[in-house]
Amino acid sequence: MTLFEGIKDQEYEVRSLYIEEKTSRRLQALGLNDGTRVKVLNRKKNGAMIIAVRGTRLALGRRILNGIEIIPLPEINDSETVSMKSAERR
């Protein structure tokens, strides 16, 4: 699924970015990358969305949201997921 289909207050993990290079580079610099966890904070029915990424908020438009492939995360305690994930990586 893409982030555009994301539901408010749900958390997801980014699988991959399918956006033109310039934009995906900016997103990566902002910390939105493969494996990053994002949370949908607010969304409009058919348009932009506010997400939480690495302690900051980003407002993203529809086209970008459609280019971010995500998988839903089960609802567990936040700190646990982070440590689990970093453990996996190591």
Partner: peptide
């Protein structure tokens, strides 16, 4: 016709 998509950080 491609819209530039919104991308802004909210403080």
């Amino acid at each position: 016709k491609d819209n530039e998509s919104l991308l802004i950080e909210l403080p």
